[in-house]
């Protein structure tokens, strides 16, 4: 079982790898072709996002101009003005942020706790119970929405953020699955030593396991955050008052029943998506390192 340290070392040598080699003319030509191809594909991939971003600064007639142009001829912030006038984005941003952060924080803790139990404690029913967790990943959300709504009504949580936070924070099958793989990858010897020293399970978990899980937790955290941030169906069903609305609901308002308000819609979608891309840009190193272990066991 490869430990996280050996992986970290090998990665370092991998990233230094190209510099160690000299640049032959042939190799140089190859690298140029590689970069041209990759850059072309990268632009193609990012084009729709760029189109969204740039269209949010276009007047309506230009969004549908023929032939289409990427850059606005006339820059305008009309879409943003309409978006901010039509919906309370500051509040929506706050709602989305605190829901996603709370869910992510609590769910990281609860799923790594469960993962630890599944990976390290032998108890009756461990495997079948884990199977149940896995199987729930295959349940389409639409199947359980009505009973879930009834339960929320019963708890008095309709039109509160608790309806969104509590289920997501307390139940995350994907998270348990992913974290279980990582805990299994930690060498047992470390814990056995600690156990001989008389440390309790709780102590081992908090002071030994959790710190070692830092990187995968970052990755899971980002995926959980992303899922919460983009969650549309749950907030749509459970929230009634627009003071409680999250960003996806605010964005969707501009779609309308019959026709969309395209300038405001482009501005609103950009407002909702940009923070995520910025966050990824900053955190991508962490994410990739975090996932480096995932799937190494399954």
């Amino acid at each position: 079982m490869s430990t996280s340290t050996t992986i970290r070392n090998s990665r370092r040598s991998a990233s230094e790898d190209p510099k160690r080699r000299g640049l032959h003319p042939r190799r140089l030509a190859g690298r140029t072709i590689l970069h041209v191809a990759l850059a072309a594909c990268a632009i193609l991939m990012a084009l729709p996002f760029l189109w969204m971003l740039l269209s949010s600064f276009k007047p309506l007639t230009e969004i549908f101009a023929q032939p289409p142009a990427l850059f606005p001829l006339e820059w305008t912030t009309e879409g943003y003005e309409k978006a901010f006038a039509g919906a309370d984005f500051v509040r929506g941003f706050w709602n989305s942020t605190y829901i996603a952060v709370t869910v992510t924080a609590v769910s990281l803790l609860t799923s790594s706790m469960a993962a630890y139990a599944f990976a390290r404690i032998e108890f009756r029913g461990s495997k079948p119970l884990f199977m149940v967790f896995l199987a729930t990943m295959m349940v389409p959300a639409q199947l359980t929405i009505i009973p879930l709504y009834i339960i929320m009504g019963w708890l008095g949580w309709v039109d509160t953020h608790a309806a969104l936070i509590v289920p997501a924070a307390l139940f995350n099958a994907f998270g348990v699955f992913l974290m279980r793989q990582y805990v299994k990858g930690i060498p047992k010897e470390l814990e056995e030593a600690a156990e001989l020293d008389g440390a309790s399970r709780f102590r081992i978990f908090t002071t030994l396991i959790l710190p070692l899980l830092r990187t995968p937790l970052t990755a899971l955290g980002i995926f959980t955050f992303l899922g919460q941030w983009n969650n549309f169906f749950g907030p749509l069903i459970f929230l009634n008052s627009d003071a409680n609305f999250t960003l996806p609901l605010l964005v969707n308002q501009f779609k309308g029943q019959y026709g969309a308000d395209w300038t405001a819609l482009m501005a609103a979608t950009t407002l909702a998506a940009a923070p995520l891309l910025i966050m990824f840009g900053i955190a991508q190193r962490q994410i990739v390192e975090g996932i480096a272990l995932s799937g190494s066991k399954s």
Partner: peptide
């Protein structure tokens, strides 16, 4: 970053 942009682009867009 470019390849990840579609992941965060909203379904409406």
């Amino acid at each position: 970053l470019c390849f990840v942009a579609p992941v965060v682009t909203s379904s409406v867009a």
